[in-house]
Structure formats: structure tokens, C-alpha cells
């Protein structure tokens, strides 16, 4: 069985991996970028993803887990379609980060690491996301929302909701 035939990934991503493992002196150096890209495409690091990444690099699934579990940005369970990461580190905390976080919890009805029943949103309290100058800040997938007030939280959620509906009706 060829790796192509068995892959969980899109052709582009598979090709990207093939190029990636050749780029470093040792193949396993490609591990962390591969995990990130895989998570972006699949949503989380399932057992199957871990196995395939291990196979592509030539290490054991245990090796992959040893590394992957170290990083809090890598997930082993599916997140919501929109993963909301609320910073409560010092700058954000001083400027109301906890209020923002509470508001998200109320509005979504979930806590830290929770996922809404419809699978649309997940919520996480995270450390500094590098937007201190515009604290308090929130990251939804790869988009930033900064200098937030509690009221803006509702707007943000509505925006993502309607975005998903549009995508759904298409």
C-alpha cells in the first residue's frame, strides 16, 4: 500500500509534507510543522493523524505523542469550527480580559476547553497571544479581535454564526 493511497490528507498537504521532511538534516525536525498543518486541515490530532505523521517521518506514534502533548496549541479532541482563545495574561487581565472570558462563557454556555453542542464554537483561556498593545485580545482560529469590550463579544459571535450559515446555505 502506498502512502498516497492511505493518506488522510489532501493532495496539497501530502505534497507539502513530502517536501518538508526532506528540508531538514533529520526527518523528525519536520514533526512540529507537520502536526500544525495536519491540525489545521483535520481539526485535531486524531490517532489516525498521529499514526500517519509517524509513518511519514519514520518514527513511532509514541514519539509523536511525546512531542505533541508538550504543546498546548495542539489538540487531541475536535475543537469547534471556530476556536475562541481568550487571553487572560497580565496585560489583558489588567484591561478586563477576565470579563471578556466570562462573557464568552455566558454567551456560549461552555467553559474552558468546552465545545458547544452544535460544534460551532469552542472556548479556551490562553496565555499571551502577543497582542498586548491592543489588550484585551481574543483569537478566533487565526483571526485576532482586539481592544475588546464585553458588548463586542456578542457581535463577534454573531458574525461567526452568520458566516457559518452563509457557508452552510451555499
Amino acid at each position: 500500500m502506498s502512502a498516497e493511497a492511505m493518506t488522510l490528507f489532501s493532495t496539497e498537504l501530502a505534497a507539502r509534507f513530502d517536501a518538508l521532511v526532506e528540508r531538514y538534516p533529520v526527518r523528525r525536525s519536520a514533526l512540529i510543522p507537520m502536526l500544525l498543518y495536519a491540525q489545521d486541515e483535520i481539526g485535531y490530532l486524531s490517532d489516525a493523524v498521529i499514526e500517519e505523521v509517524a509513518r511519514r517521518i519514520g518514527i513511532t506514534p509514541l514519539d509523536v505523542r511525546n512531542v505533541a502533548t508538550y504543546y498546548s496549541m495542539l489538540r487531541f479532541k475536535p475543537a469547534g469550527k471556530f476556536n475562541v482563545q481568550v487571553c487572560t495574561n497580565i496585560s489583558c487581565m489588567l484591561r478586563g480580559g477576565y470579563k471578556i472570558f466570562e462573557r464568552f462563557q455566558e454567551r456560549l454556555g461552555i467553559g474552558h476547553k468546552g465545545v458547544t453542542a452544535d460544534g460551532l464554537f469552542s472556548l479556551e483561556e490562553v496565555e499571551c497571544i502577543g497582542a498586548c498593545c491592543w489588550a484585551p485580545a481574543v483569537q478566533v482560529n487565526y483571526d485576532f479581535h482586539d481592544e475588546l469590550t464585553e458588548e463586542q463579544v456578542d457581535a463577534i459571535l454573531d458574525e461567526y454564526r452568520s458566516r457559518s450559515q452563509k457557508a452552510g446555505s451555499r
Partner: peptide, 9 residues
Amino acid sequence: VWALGIQNR
């Protein structure tokens, strides 16, 4: 054998 690893931090 490499059957043991360390996870999380």
C-alpha cells in the same frame, strides 16, 4: 524497544 515515552509537561 522504545516502548516508553514522556507526555505533557
